[in-house]
Amino acid sequence: MTTLPDSTTRKLGLVIDLDTCVGCHACVISCKGWNTENYGAPLSDQNPYGSDPTGTFLNRIHSYEVQPDTGPAQLIHFPKSCLHCEDAPCVTVCPTGASYKRTEDGIVLVNETDCIGCGLCAWACPYGARELDAAEGVMKKCTLCVDRIYNENLPEEDREPACVRTCPSGARHFGDFADPDSHVSKLSTARGGMDLMPEQGTKPVNKYLPPRPKDSWQGETDVLAPWLAPIDPEPQGGFLGWLDRALGKLPGDSAGKEG
């Protein structure tokens, strides 16, 4: 049923740390690897070795350049997968009931046997988190790895989303936002976790941690700095001074000045 639940018992989701993401795309690969052979239809590729390859992914990494008023530009890698919104517009537009939000944990899923592939849910999602699979004709989206997080056949450390498990820089965290004491809730509070496009009113569950302020050299002198001063000043007199001047006068040197 595409009516959204009034509230969900738990709010499972991700914290994505824009400060630590290094843009390696490892989570893209692990997400595709896990999800192409588990929940629902495979994530197909079209023309994968041809000149115009394309395919279905549930998680993609953008990169943005941000230019502050002063100082150098920053490069920020930006992972994006479904944000499992509380007020998910993708669910209510679905004509078939294939899209739904689970009452028990808030995960937004597609029941692929009901989906007619009309694409309306992908239009309704502001984040580009849904892709229609070209081979299967049904809508694919992040499942929050629902087939891992409750999977008792997996060792306990693997019962978290594939992208979280894989990330080499610890930029993705999984947990329950309904519990204020959870790892993700605390992390989000401590680091000012933010909503993407809050004006769209989707109330995303996933939170993004803004990059920490960058270091600057202003007013920062290391205690060891005095010992780093040149031991020997530029030679003035004596043999080295004469050599310096003599070499400077030789043709080929730029106006006899040391660079």
Binding site: P68, L196, Y208
Partner: peptide
Amino acid sequence: ATGLGTIG
């Protein structure tokens, strides 16, 4: 969309 507008 990115939440990064506060930086620049």
